[in-house]
Each structure stands twice: as structure tokens, then as C-alpha cells.
Computed example of a mutant assay.
Amino acid sequence: MAGPDTGADAPGTQARPLVPLYEAPQLPRWSLPPALTELYGSDLGFAEPVIYSNFVASLDGVVALGPEHPSSGSAISGNEATDRFVMGLLRACADAVVIGAGTLRASPHHLWTPQHVYPAATADFAELRHRRRRAPDPELVVVTASGDLPTEHPALHADAVILTTAENARNLHARLPATCTVLAAGRGPRLPISNVIDAVRARGHGVVLTEGGPHLIGQLIRERLLDELFLTTAPVLAGRANTIRPGLIAGLELLPAHRRTADLVSARRRASYLFLRYQISHPLPPAQPANPT
């Protein structure tokens, strides 16, 4: 992910305007507040409904540094302020932000709001949401099949929707703050990602950002549910040796048997960082032979 960490912007760090390198002409455009348009390099918008994700990756394709560094996005990005601005902007556009319980546990002080990652644009993010007639913050949706949640996490005390199994829902109702809404999205031991998205849609959310990790992205890709990917390529080499350092997708193998492609629809630059936007292609599954009569 263009990743949550334990705090907000370091004092004095300011994003710099992105330089547009390429933009597909058919992209939807919402009217952003002028300060956001200046920083992003143009307006930004989505065709609804949409599910999009946001990651930062090293040049060698690492998006997470392993279990000993559970919240490693800012280490990969170098805490680049412009990456944090883009993360905040993508949150400001969203009706809901979907994360897994592992992401919540790995970021013990984080709030999944636009202003948390880029406070300098707080007023402009609020203006964008006002123009869009949205709530002040996107709704945080936490997905957990196990029910293992840190009940003291500040994000759970600031309103959150918990999607879990029917078996865990009653127990979580008793354990979590009253600010949380707990919903059953399936019966254990796993939650089908299609059930999760159905539950999010049922709450009226057409524009959905996922900041879940590679396993959640793998599930969305498997079920042909992810529409767009925002990828920041940081000018750094992470390396791999004795720890698991995943790329964008975990828990799903595609090549060589299954080819999924993406269309580049936007490319921007800030110094040696690249900010890329892809639309994911989802070919239809092979037709099943008809049952003999």
C-alpha cells in the first residue's frame, strides 16, 4: 500500500505538484478544489461504481518489508510527502476505505482519513467531500474472518464497520466500542470477498478504496472485482533474502496459465517517483460445457 504508518506528515514536509506525463482522454473528471488540482496536476474522477487500490512499491517490486516491519509503506516511499498527498486525495474521493484486520493491527495509531496522512490539505479535502455531498470522512470497513481485532485501536473508536463471520459477530458486538457497526458477511472460516463487497455496496458506497494488503488484492483479482490500481513506484531497492517480501498480489498465481493485463491511463512524476494509474482488464472466465441431456 501507499502505506499507513504510525503518524501523520512529518513537520515541515509539503507535497510538490505532480508533473503529468500521460493521461487517457476518456477518464472521468470531478471538479477538485483549486489547491488539489494544482498538486495533482489536473482534476480527478471515477466512473461509478468502482473499486480501486493504492500501493507504493520499490523498484524491485516489494510492497511490504516482512513481518518484522508490519507497516512499511512509508519506509518504501521514504515518507515522500507527495505520495502521502496522493494517498489522502484517493481517500477523499472514496465513499469507503476497506482494509483487512492485519492492516489495522499493523498500524496501531493510524486513522484512515484523508487528513491523517496529509494534514496540510485538510480544508481542501473537506471541500471536495462537501462538493460530492459525502460524509466528512470515508467510512472505514475492516474485514476479519478470525475476529482478532485490537479493541483499543483509535480507528475503532472513531466509527468503523466490521465485516466478519456470523460466528464471530455476536462476540465482537460485546467486545468492540459502541461506535462500531458489526455485520455478518458469511459463515466461517473464511469470508468470500464477493460477500464483503456486496455488504459495502449495500451501505450505499459506490466509490470504494481498498488499502488492504496483497492477500486482499489477490482475492479481489481472483473474483474480477478490482477495477483500478494506483501505484507509486519509489526510487529505492528493497531486496529479498530471508524474509517474505511480497509484491502486489499474494495467495494467487496467474502466469503462465492465466493472463490478466492492465491499461495505463495516467502517469505522473515527482522527482524520481512515478505515480501510475491502471485500469484492470478482467477477461471473462472460460465458458463451461453444457450438461448433456
Rank of each mutant, 00 (worst) to 15 (best):
residue 1 M to R: 11
residue 3 G to S: 03
residue 5 D to Q: 08
residue 7 G to M: 00
residue 8 A to L: 00
residue 11 P to N: 02
residue 14 Q to K: 09
residue 15 A to Q: 04
residue 23 E to T: 11
residue 24 A to D: 12
residue 27 L to D: 03
residue 28 P to K: 06
residue 29 R to F: 02
residue 39 L to W: 10
residue 39 L to D: 05
residue 40 Y to S: 00
residue 48 E to L: 15
residue 49 P to M: 12
residue 49 P to C: 06
residue 50 V to H: 08
residue 51 I to H: 06
residue 52 Y to I: 13
residue 52 Y to M: 08
residue 54 N to Q: 14
residue 59 L to S: 07
residue 63 V to E: 02
residue 65 L to H: 02
residue 66 G to L: 01
residue 70 P to A: 12
residue 70 P to H: 11
residue 75 A to W: 02
residue 77 S to A: 14
residue 77 S to G: 10
residue 78 G to D: 11
residue 82 T to N: 00
residue 82 T to A: 00
residue 85 F to C: 10
residue 86 V to W: 08
residue 91 R to G: 07
residue 91 R to C: 07
residue 95 D to G: 11
residue 95 D to Y: 06
residue 97 V to E: 01
residue 100 G to A: 10
residue 100 G to M: 12
residue 101 A to T: 02
residue 101 A to M: 01
residue 104 L to M: 15
residue 107 S to E: 11
residue 109 H to E: 12
residue 110 H to L: 10
residue 110 H to F: 10
residue 111 L to C: 03
residue 112 W to C: 09
residue 115 Q to K: 05
residue 119 P to W: 04
residue 122 T to M: 03
residue 123 A to W: 08
residue 128 L to I: 15
residue 128 L to Q: 14
residue 137 D to T: 09
residue 138 P to D: 15
residue 145 A to M: 09
residue 147 G to C: 11
residue 150 P to G: 11
residue 154 P to L: 07
residue 156 L to W: 11
residue 158 A to T: 11
residue 160 A to S: 11
residue 160 A to P: 10
residue 161 V to S: 06
residue 163 L to K: 12
residue 164 T to H: 10
residue 164 T to M: 13
residue 166 A to W: 01
residue 167 E to H: 13
residue 170 R to G: 03
residue 171 N to Y: 04
residue 172 L to E: 08
residue 175 R to S: 13
residue 181 T to W: 00
residue 181 T to A: 04
residue 187 R to Q: 15
residue 189 P to Q: 08
residue 190 R to G: 02
residue 191 L to E: 13
residue 193 I to E: 07
residue 194 S to V: 15
residue 194 S to W: 03
residue 197 I to R: 09
residue 200 V to S: 09
residue 206 G to R: 15
residue 211 E to K: 02
residue 212 G to L: 07
residue 212 G to E: 00
residue 214 P to Q: 05
residue 216 L to E: 02
residue 217 I to D: 12
residue 217 I to C: 05
residue 217 I to E: 04
residue 226 L to V: 12
residue 229 L to D: 07
residue 236 V to W: 00
residue 236 V to C: 10
residue 237 L to T: 05
residue 241 A to I: 07
residue 242 N to D: 14
residue 245 R to Y: 08
residue 248 L to A: 00
residue 250 A to C: 01
residue 250 A to Y: 03
residue 251 G to T: 01
residue 254 L to P: 00
residue 255 L to G: 06
residue 258 H to C: 09
residue 263 D to A: 11
residue 268 R to W: 00
residue 279 Q to L: 05
residue 279 Q to K: 14
residue 281 S to A: 08
residue 284 L to G: 05
residue 288 Q to H: 06
residue 289 P to I: 03
residue 290 A to I: 13
